[in-house]
């Protein structure tokens, strides 16, 4: 299996004390990975290191064999979709339909092609009923799905979701898990940064646990 993201002895510190120390692992393109750990254990930091939003103090993160920092941010976004913990930070348009087509339009894709892709994503993520709705007026679960749909419209090879179950009740978690199942069916791998062991166990094949700056592979 080809290695999509590789962390090589990655260390990172916000201040004098390190958050992440000498962490190494690799993720394949269609891996389904849970990244778990206590609050402040460095899960979100690890996710940001994958995306090159943070620079490791030591070591290297490779995206398709090349240092992630060498990829322009827009290309990283095409390769890896990132869904923030707060989806509101990723909503830019006045309707859900426009939101999904937003990235594609600015990349100069043909209008008909954009419309087709938007329709597919609205269908896939069961958002047809809110196509014309203002994204900020959607429920938390719908906002999560809308951002995921917008990210998936770019056809990335991998998706990172930061605490996707925050603020979702059992039914909405179920809906989200179905959507992630569809993402996996498309051959797209994902990393779930989460506290929710039950949710992760259902959706992931690998479990990485962050503790004391270390990251160990464990079984569920």
């Amino acid at each position: 299996m080809s290695e999509f993201i590789v962390a090589k002895s990655v260390s990172f510190a916000y201040g004098p004390s390190p958050v992440i120390e000498q962490v190494s692992f690799s993720l394949a393109a269609n891996d389904r990975v849970a990244l778990m750990g206590d609050n402040g254990s460095g899960k979100t930091t690890m996710g940001k290191l994958f995306m090159g939003m943070l620079k490791p103090s030591h070591g290297q993160v490779l995206l398709e064999g090349r240092d992630v920092a060498q990829w322009p941010m827009s290309q990283r976004g095409e390769k890896i979709g990132y869904v923030f913990q707060n989806p509101e930070k990723q909503l830019f348009c006045s309707s859900a339909g426009q939101e999904i087509g937003f990235g594609l339009t600015y990349r100069g894709m043909d209008k008909q092609e954009v419309a087709k892709r938007v329709d597919e994503m609205l269908e896939l993520f069961e958002l047809n009923h809110c196509r014309e709705n203002f994204p900020f007026n959607l429920s938390q679960g719908e906002k999560q799905r809308l951002v995921l749909a917008a990210v998936m419209a770019l056809q990335p090879g991998f998706v990172i979701l930061d605490e996707p179950t925050t603020g979702l009740d059992a039914r909405r978690k179920q809906v989200l898990s179905e959507m992630l199942g569809r993402v996996a069916d498309l051959g797209v791998g994902y990393v779930l940064i989460s506290h929710d062991q039950e949710f992760c166990k259902k959706l992931c094949r690998r479990l990485l646990v962050m503790e004391g700056g270390r990251c160990d592979e464990q079984s569920f």
Binding site: M73, S74, Q75, G77, E88, F92, C93, F102, Y106
Partner: peptide
């Protein structure tokens, strides 16, 4: 987040870039 949507801000024309800034103001 805009860049993570695959948008290279430097590569788009000036007029579109201004429109993009109005989108940024929304969140």
């Amino acid at each position: 987040a805009i860049q993570l949507r695959g948008i290279d801000m430097k590569a788009i024309p000036l007029g579109a870039r201004f429109r993009l800034y109005t989108n940024i103001l929304l969140p």
